[in-house]
Computed example of a mutant assay.
Amino acid sequence: MQRSDLSGVWSLTAFDDVGPGGERLEGPLGPDPRGLLIYCDDGHMSVSLMRTADSTRRPTTPTRLDFMGYAGTWRLDGDRVIHRVTITHTPHLKDHDQIRELRVDNELMSLYGTVSFQGRDVRRVLEWHRAGERR
């Protein structure tokens, strides 16, 4: 994989939690999240994710969010992409790496990661299409 395979703007098509049996469960931004992920050739990146307007009527909780995002730098490491967070609304992410397993198939990119909250690890998958390829 080369940097040029990722450089550009990606549009979010799915953000799901992955259950213990591999089943997909609704993620923290609800059933129809929106987002943009930007990878610049010079190694900078930015990601913004949000719950869609029609699903924002319930209150935000630690497992149910309305917006998340950060910016920083990115690099490839084999079949992983590593985001170094320098700007974020979530203080515990600042100056830390977000490591994602990476799969790219033409215009589709899947990022897999594990987050910890409330004493347990949760596996997540985010699926992206190159901007303009919303499905």
Results as ranks from 00 to 15, higher is better:
L93V: 04
H83C: 05
I87L: 15
D17W: 10
L29V: 09
Y70D: 06
R134V: 07
R130Q: 05
I99Y: 09
S11I: 01
S110L: 11
V9E: 09
G35A: 06
V85S: 05
F67K: 01
H96F: 11
T52P: 08
T114K: 13
P59H: 04
T61A: 07
V9D: 06
H83Y: 13
V9P: 01
P91W: 13
H129C: 08
R80Q: 14
V115H: 02
P28N: 11
S7R: 10
R120P: 02
T60V: 15
I99D: 07
L37N: 11
S11F: 03
F67T: 13
E101W: 09
D42V: 02
G35T: 08
S116N: 14
R135I: 05
I82V: 15
L108Y: 02
G8M: 11
S55V: 01
R124F: 02
G30Y: 07
W128I: 01
L37T: 04
I82P: 00
G22M: 04
L36K: 05
I87G: 06
R120K: 04
R134T: 09
L93Y: 14
M50C: 15
D17L: 14
V125D: 02
Q98I: 05
R130W: 07
D42Y: 02
R123T: 01
E133M: 04
L102R: 08
R120G: 03
R64T: 07
G35S: 07
R120F: 04
E23Y: 02
D121F: 10
L49C: 07
D16Y: 04
G119N: 08
W10R: 00
I38H: 07
R135T: 14
I82G: 03
S7T: 14
P59A: 09
R135S: 02
V104M: 01
R57Y: 04
H92V: 14
R135D: 10
A14K: 05
T86D: 09
V81F: 02
R3Y: 11
E26N: 07
D32K: 13
R75I: 12
D54E: 15
F15A: 11
Q2A: 11
R134D: 12
T13V: 15
A71V: 10
W10Q: 09
D105S: 03
G21T: 04
R75N: 09
R134I: 12
L65T: 00
A71G: 15
R123D: 04
T88D: 08
